[in-house]
Nucleic acid binder design. Structure first.
Length: 482
RNA sequence: GGCCCGUUGGUCAAGCGGCUAAGACACCGCCCUUUCACGGCGGAGACAUGAGUUCGAUUCUCGUACGGGUCACCA
């Protein structure tokens, strides 16, 4: 059996959609699980859409998630070049060969005629299709026009009758009538191939055994089958995967702001979590586990787990998975990730390691950190109703009493550590004979000004220090007395 | 519109002729707890629809509805 060779063939648009990334991921998994090769090929035959630096975005993203290719534009390989515009001679050669084989023909129709034709067809309610005007030009006529330098394209010669069946791993056999297929353009006037042609030629020449692609290609797949047949080549195994949707009606698009890998990373998601999540969109593992590293994904991946229906991208689920990854991080690693975010709203000289350790269990996305730590530098003004809490059986009046008792206790405390603070405050609690929350709730509010905080009264007091704690308590007492 | 494809809880999904129809996220309740989280326990919630095949259909076939894809010198 031949070696499994798969390829990811993005167009350089300057942006890697999560759908594309998922395709790359599945493609990679198929190759790696079989011990085969994963190839990167750049499909840049549309020079009008060329975007400067777009290739780098692709390289950078793929490397960031660990989808390292065995052959590709920047690292070479035995089947190069891996950038289609550098292969233009190859396509021309094969297109001409296909003409000789009877699977294609020269067409000299200009765009004006074509658009006119289309307009007429649409007006009369007919499916727009090329009318095969040049299909039966005599060899002499062709030679003549070619010699005269008439611009031309090469079109696929679809059989007039019969039907074509192609196979997809997920969808099984799909048969269509040849009469519904258009004599599509293979080689453009500019000498570059269309995707429809380049993809077939390259996959064959590069020895690709399995093709994973979006299911927008399902409709044109029979035409590729016909191309393979005309060349006498063996077709690869096809796996068409459904789209990732924003909702039931719409695909996830650039406008949604979280359609690209970089959008997600900028929003504070971890690379590993993103990969893990998108793998779960349209694919399901055998067991009940759903957290997988890339190597585990490779191990676990199986085509039979792929779904035939579109999957809606669910930010909530991504958050949850991201949260799992964050909690699984070592405290040091998390602190490293969290620090820049903490610094956005917390400039003071605090022990960031301690803040990070408080943050880790309650952070799902890094970008939500700043709002959680915005009270360390300066206590925000807050509403006194925060002191009213039924569960803690306390209110402003009770809080005022508690704070007045806690203040001297803390003022006299010399060991300002977590243990020291605990001893002091719990001593007060015991002395007063009340529930923990009766004291700790008001103190926390008094020094944070917030309903929810990372960490409790003790942790916060320790981090902001004695002076600041006492200052805030006094201020809060004044507010309660006013 | 023609052709192709799909349809299990709000979402991702398991299922592949016989099940009390998994699991995860979200949601609700309880426990833990100095708040919120984390963690633990529990709950509610689904086979689009109509026929047919069959002893028996979520599972097979056909129709209907709904949704998607495609009909470019874009990929």
């Amino acid at each position: 059996m031949n070696e499994v060779r798969t390829r990811f063939a993005p167009s350089p648009t300057g942006y890697l959609h999560v759908g594309g990334l998922r395709t790359a991921l599945f493609t990679y998994c198929i190759a790696k699980k079989a011990g085969g090769k994963f190839i990167l090929r750049i499909e840049d035959t549309d020079q009008e859409r060329y975007v400067e630096g777009a290739n780098e975005v692709i390289y950078r993203t793929l490397r960031a998630v660990g989808l390292n290719w065995d052959e590709g534009p920047d690292i070479g390989g035995d089947y190069g070049p891996y950038i289609q515009t550098e292969r233009r001679g190859i396509y021309k050669e094969y297109a001409e060969k296909l003409v000789e084989l009877g699977g294609a023909y020269y067409c000299f129709c200009d765009k004006d005629r074509l658009s006119e034709l289309k307009a007429v067809q649409e007006a009369s309610g007919v499916n727009p299709m090329y009318d095969r005007h040049c299909r039966n030009l005599s060899p002499e006529e062709v030679k003549e026009k070619l010699a005269a330098g008439t611009p031309y394209v090469i079109r696929q010669k679809i059989p007039l009758e019969g039907s074509t069946t192609f196979s997809d791993v997920l969808y099984g056999d799909i048969t269509v009538e040849n009469s519904t297929l258009d004599d599509q353009i293979l080689l453009k006037t500019d000498g570059l191939p269309t995707y429809n042609f380049a993809n077939v030629v390259d996959d064959h020449l590069m020895g690709i055994t399995h093709v994973v692609r979006g299911n927008e290609y399902l409709a044109s797949a029979p035409k590729y089958t016909l191309l393979y047949k005309a060349f006498g080549w063996e077709e690869p195994v096809y796996i068409h995967v459904e789209h990732i949707m924003r909702d039931k009606q719409h695909k996830l698009s650039k406008r949604d702001g979280d359609a690209s890998y970089e959008d997600l990373i900028n929003k504070g998601y971890l690379s590993e979590a993103v990969v893990n999540y998108i793998a779960l969109l349209g694919w399901s593992p055998k067991g009940e586990r759903e957290i997988f590293s890339l190597p585990e994904l490779v191990e676990e991946f199986d085509i039979s787990g792929l779904s035939k229906s579109p999957a809606i991208f669910d930010p909530m689920k991504l958050r949850a998975i991201n949260g799992e990854y964050i909690r699984a991080l070592s405290p040091e690693k998390f602190a490293e990730y969290a620090e820049p975010y903490i610094r956005k709203s917390c400039k003071g000289d605090f022990d960031l390691k301690k803040i990070a350790s408080l943050l880790q269990p309650r952070t799902e996305v890094l970008s939500e950190i700043p709002e959680q730590v915005d009270f360390f530098d300066e206590m925000p003004s807050y509403d006194l109703s925060l002191y009213d809490n039924k569960k803690m059986k306390t209110d402003r009046a009770a809080a005022l009493e508690v704070l007045k008792k806690a203040l001297p206790t803390l003022e006299n405390l010399s060991d300002w550590s977590l243990d020291g603070l605990r001893e002091a405050l719990f001593g007060l609690i015991a002395e007063m004979g009340v529930k923990n929350g009766f004291v700790l709730w008001p103190v926390r509010v008094a020094i944070s000004g917030k309903q929810f905080t990372p960490g409790g009264a003790l942790e916060i007091a320790e981090i902001i220090g004695k002076d600041e704690t006492l200052r805030r308590m006094k201020r809060s007492i004044e507010m309660l007395e006013a």
